[in-house]
Amino acid sequence: RSAAPPPEDWSAALCLVAERSDREAFGRLFSHFAPRVKSYLMRTGSSDALAEELAQEALVTVWRKAALFDPAQAAVSTWIFTIARHLRVDAARRHRLDGAGDECFEFDDLAADQPDAAQRIDATRLAQRVREALRRLPPEQAQVLRLSFYDDEPHARIAAELDLPLGTVKSRIRLAMAHLRRLLDP
């Protein structure tokens, strides 16, 4: 895998999209994030075709909502993850309602989804610290945290996949989270 540019590059690219409708910067964001969004969505159970469509949708949403991105509140990867998550939830709901639900997630709500002004932290730094903390967790703890992002019934699925009782999965998640918190505490 090619070395990923540092996250602040993505912030700058996204600002170019927001301020100058910069297609070249958008192209770079697309080439980096669309295949990862697609990969993530396939891992959560979407078909190749649906994941491709939603990855498209996610990046077009990045263009549409670029002006709402606030680097003080979220790293670009965090922001795009949130968009992908909303699209996944929406697609699952439309599927469940068999097309009956035309209610779409309103992405302007994303701003409200973020921590408030009093709580602003350096989001890029937080993402960096989380990445490092995840690396330092014992592998079995990092594993349950990662797996938690992949399934609609994450705990039951993790229990089945790792052949663990459900209670053990929950306590391992809590252990992992406590560990992560300690690593994030300055």
């Binding site: 895998r1 969004v37 990867s77």
Partner: peptide, 15 residues
């Protein structure tokens, strides 16, 4: 942020 890290970790799927 962890979600963003997990997204970054994905092996890119060909589009």
């Amino acid at each position: 942020a962890l979600g963003g890290v997990v997204l970054e970790e994905q092996a890119p799927a060909p589009m």
